[in-house]
């Protein structure tokens, strides 16, 4: 029996490049193996793993997402990714847009909400949400730049 050495590769991508990277993996014929979410340094770290069935090479794509951000769903390239994404959304509160077959929090029939997100992360998320809201308010309340209307004195000097 020939032993095949399992090689693992890690890639870091930005949120914006996620869909393109996943589509490329799909074109190469790789199979989606898992999507894993962890909370590291008050950010969500989402790890997508793809494998090649002939060479057993595992490619991992890592995306760091803020606690209040959303990431797009990869269900266009891999239709069965919806189970992993539903699980992540329910367990960690990660917001994912446009899941094909979204259970809206009812995939796991349990009572607890976001059980895997610990207290520290929830507070950090609330703080971040506050900051974002304050920044948005300040941007809205900024005084409008003064437009000097030069009145033409009607005729009389």
């Amino acid at each position: 029996m020939t032993v095949i050495e399992p090689v693992q590769k890690f890639e870091d991508v930005q949120k914006g490049d996620l869909l393109i990277t996943v589509m490329r993996k799909r074109q190469e014929g790789l199979r989606l193996v898992q999507i894993c979410c962890a909370v590291v340094n008050n950010q969500y770290e989402v790890l997508y793993s793809f494998t090649d069935d002939d060479t057993y090479v595992l490619t991992n794509v890592r995306v760091m997402v803020g606690l209040n951000d959303t990431i797009p769903s990869i269900c266009d390239s891999y239709p069965y990714a919806n189970y992993y994404e539903n699980e992540m959304a329910e367990m960690f509160g990660l917001k994912i847009e446009m899941i094909d077959g979204d259970y809206h929090g009812k995939f796991y029939r349990i009572d607890a909400e976001e059980p895997f997100l610990n207290e520290k992360a929830k507070e950090a998320r609330a703080l971040e949400a506050e900051e974002i809201r304050k920044a948005a308010e300040e941007a809205a309340n900024m005084p409008e730049p003064e437009i000097k209307v030069v009145k033409k004195e009607g005729g009389v000097e």
Partner: peptide, 29 residues
């Protein structure tokens, strides 16, 4: 089937994240 074990640790007695991806989860679709 193929099961995946992912461990993320940060120099403490308690692991930060431990995840098992089991084969039945992959066979559900």
């Amino acid at each position: 089937g193929e099961a995946i074990y992912y461990v993320n640790a940060e120099n403490s007695r308690f692991l930060n994240r431990f995840r098992i991806r089991t084969p039945t989860f992959a066979n559900l679709p």
